[in-house]
Design a protein around this nucleic acid. Structure first.
Lengths: 129, 129
DNA sequence: GATTCATATTCCCGAATGGGAATATGCATG
DNA sequence: CATGCATATTCCCATTCGGGAATATGAATC
């Protein structure tokens, strides 16, 4: 089925600051690359590479929507992954960097709803009135 | 106080199989290097180096007892460390490698009590009758 | 103070990592 | 099919990593 992700692989994915930030933001819902760029304020290569890293190790799923690549957490994460993502969530709650990212996400969500036809944010359900 | 260990550092410590095994065993109580060697069945350099890695990053404490170096989990771990060690414990419960290590620990504990004067296992309280 | 035991450190190696510049891919639209 | 946009990949580089052989340290004991 969904490839077995063992513990060490999970921790390898978690031991980079950028990847932690990506996962933290992803916990709020699917998002596409350009939005990550805006939220983390990191260059495209960096975002894309780290998402690739997570992708090849099964920590994120992705789906193409036209030009956009929409990333999301796996639908059926392993027990280990679920536990560790929950733990990360817990730890991130008090961390200024993670909180800032989430604040930016919140702030940018309406803008994303307008500019991106990919519907990668739930709020993007506005039928472009 | 106890140096601030940030999340990434913790995950860097957790992303190696040997170090995970060390921490898993350590969760049962303090232990010295030679015992780790027997339990993990890995060469001395490997054990010592990985313990050093954990030590310099504040994930384990240690105390010299004669010739023996007794390692243990930090007395006052940070919130993040506590959360992640708990998560590791949870994940390790179903993992054959970790279980095997704990089984060996259990089995070897009486022997340790005889052979090591370092008292690094609680069971070593035998007053050498 | 020489020896022994437990442990740590130093070299050396091949492999992986993270980062950025440049380039390639793939979809959409004119 | 040329162009533009969003994203991925390829090189290249400096750094770190994990492993093992050999050596060093430091405490205990003779």
């Amino acid at each position: 089925m969904h490839d077995r992700v063992d513990l060490v692989k999970i921790y390898e994915c978690l031991c980079d600051r950028t990847r932690l930030r990506l996962l933290n933001v992803l916990a709020q819902g699917p998002l596409c690359v350009c939005h990550f760029q805006e939220i983390l304020r990191e260059p495209q290569v960096k975002i894309s590479k780290h998402l690739g890293y997570l992708r090849t190790r099964g920590l994120v799923a992705y789906e193409r929507q036209g030009n956009w690549m929409v990333y999301e957490l796996p639908a059926k994460p392993s027990r280990e992954l679920r536990a560790n993502l929950a733990c990360l969530q817990d730890c991130a709650r008090e961390n200024p960097v993670f909180r800032r990212d989430l604040a930016r996400l919140e702030k940018l969500t309406p803008k994303f709803a307008e500019t991106s036809p990919c519907g990668c944010r739930p709020a993007a359900k506005t039928t472009a009135g």
